[in-house]
């Protein structure tokens, strides 16, 4: 009996990601969710700008590549013109939380019925390890060589907490992919985010704490440890909003 194999919705090609980059894990989880819900033929993905710009090469569904940060705006258009399709965006922290903050916030507050997969690795990967809005205080990057100083460079943005104050949001959960248990938790969260869209509940976002071994200057296993020890205390895992839970409480 096969207990684990490549999901059908994932293309059988090598990815361009660095060794140990957790983008690969999250790509697989998205593909597994698409397979599990049987929506491969009706799913349209929106790729961002950043390391995951080539996501369109790795999923077997239709994909569009949006201008930097504009994925939720493009997804809005795709979903409104094709309301029977399942539309998701796959965005990094530089894309979603910096140049695309306006699109993210307004797509959320409008309650667009889309799914956002948000990769938070606290750094800009593709451009060479610059400080991102999610870079931790004290974290060294190429543009904060003495460590991020909140007095000068401001404080990091906690995206799930920020968006959970908006009425259009149906579901927000922060997960991590540092251990097999957390990966399985992330898989459930991503599947729920897609199911919510099928059930027309509004915008669902899953924030995935990820690593960037290359730009953090660590081995892949050291990077997972750093994520656990530094990112998780600042970005606590958990469900930040779930409209189903609210209905149950009433």
């Amino acid at each position: 009996m096969v207990v684990f194999k490549k999901p059908q919705s994932l293309s059988p090609v090598p990815t361009h990601y660095c060794p140990g980059c957790t983008h690969g894990i999250v790509h697989r989880l998205v593909a597994e969710a698409i397979d599990a819900l049987g929506i491969e033929g009706q799913t349209i993905g929106v790729a961002p700008v950043g390391c995951s710009v080539f996501a369109y090469n790795y999923f077997e569904c239709d994909m569009i590549q949006a201008a930097h940060g504009r994925a939720p705006a493009v997804a809005t258009g795709v979903k409104r013109t094709n309301p029977d399709k399942i539309v998701f965006t796959y965005q990094g922290d530089g894309d979603l939380a910096a140049i695309g903050t306006a699109e993210t916030v307004h797509a959320t507050t409008r309650g667009e019925n889309i799914t956002i997969i948000f990769i938070n690795n606290a750094i800009y990967g593709m451009t060479g390890g610059q400080m991102a809005p999610t870079t931790l205080p004290g974290q060294v990057t190429t543009t904060s060589p003495y460590g991020r100083n909140p007095m000068i460079q401001g404080n990091p943005i906690r995206v799930c907490e920020m968006l959970s104050t908006l009425d259009g949001l149906a579901f927000a959960q922060r997960v991590a992919v540092d251990t097999p248990a957390h990966v399985n938790q992330a898989k459930k969260a991503i599947q729920k985010a897609f199911q919510n869209q099928i059930d027309k509940k509004g915008l669902s976002i899953v924030e995935v704490l990820s690593t960037c071994p290359t730009n953090w200057g660590m081995s892949p296993t050291e990077a997972l440890k750093w994520l656990r020890e530094n990112m998780m205390p600042y970005y606590p895992l958990g469900v930040y909003k779930d409209i189903d839970a609210k209905e149950e409480n009433k």
Binding site: F4, K5, K6, I25
Partner: peptide
Amino acid sequence: IACAMCATMCPDVVITVEKNV
């Protein structure tokens, strides 16, 4: 033991696990 934890963590979908039942 075919727990598939290796495959769960693999970012490149290198591993296939089959359990003998």
